[in-house]
Design a protein around this nucleic acid. Sequence first.
DNA 1: CCGACTTTTCAGAAATTTCTGAAGAGTCGG
DNA 2: CCGACTCTTCAGAAATTTCTGAAAAGTCGG
Lengths: 152, 152
Amino acid sequence: MNDRYEHWQAAERLALTLIQGGLQRMAARTLAVFLFTDQESVTAGEIAGQLEASAGSVSGAIKSLLTVGLIERLPSPGSRREHYRLRDDAWATLFTGQNTVIQAMLQAAAAGIATTDEGDPAHQRLTQMHAFYDFLLGEIPALLHRWHQQTG
Amino acid sequence: MNDRYEHWQAAERLALTLIQGGLQRMAARTLAVFLFTDQESVTAGEIAGQLEASAGSVSGAIKSLLTVGLIERLPSPGSRREHYRLRDDAWATLFTGQNTVIQAMLQAAAAGIATTDEGDPAHQRLTQMHAFYDFLLGEIPALLHRWHQQTG
DNA sequence: CCGACTTTTCAGAAATTTCTGAAGAGTCGG
DNA sequence: CCGACTCTTCAGAAATTTCTGAAAAGTCGG
């Protein structure tokens, strides 16, 4: 029950939380490695070893983390292995990813509104839904601005 | 391709979006029914008919929607069937549900911080993560306040 | 270019999630 | 209380998601 074990434990717990937050299982575990490693950057092979997972599944996880912008590929200095690390604004990025969902909600609501008449209960409900997500979308830029100001 | 069909189409599309947003499949489809129905309230049986799903799965979906506070059970006036309807503040509630995730993230980060020493790269990364979610959690009350003010 | 090493791809396997159907529990009118 | 109807529970089936292992592709030093 040394430090190394505690790290592993905390990392796996965080991975579970990330899964709850919507990430895929292996992507979440991979992200946990990026958080808990003592190195500045890690390679796919190191992650696979750490997680006792196949190179294939790690490859897929890295791909998805790159796509959503949580990690970045580093210019590899004379090495065959690709190095990756957590991006500085990873958490803000993860949060911003909700925008996509919100916009989809807005679109879905709008589509529903278009198929109903102005007196319908359904019309009213969909309008309320639209109003909320419209509000939410509008608030996000200012919120992120406040965050960047607080840190910067 | 009449109105009824368009409704079904729009409802199913919205259900898919809700699934993306983290709801379970049947819960999402059920919520879509609550949105698109022309009635003030619906029964479990009506939902099952609408979705061509079993009573069992609808029962489970309603249970979970009740738990997260998206719908409410109405006092049934002299009927054996329970009536349900979408709650007024359903969308704000759905959004607030993210709080749980954020708090879990905070806890996970804190646990990680506790197992690392102050100079470690891991310590720094976990601290940044903690700072962001702490900020986020703090912003939510004011945000919801603005929303209620805007509508009220 | 070659050889050694690493990453990516992908078909099939494994695991997990989700749904169904039937039995049982609950509820209301009579 | 009884009978009719509705809702809930839960074990097993179905569907979906996720992982693995091996082959192929890519990359770098020499």
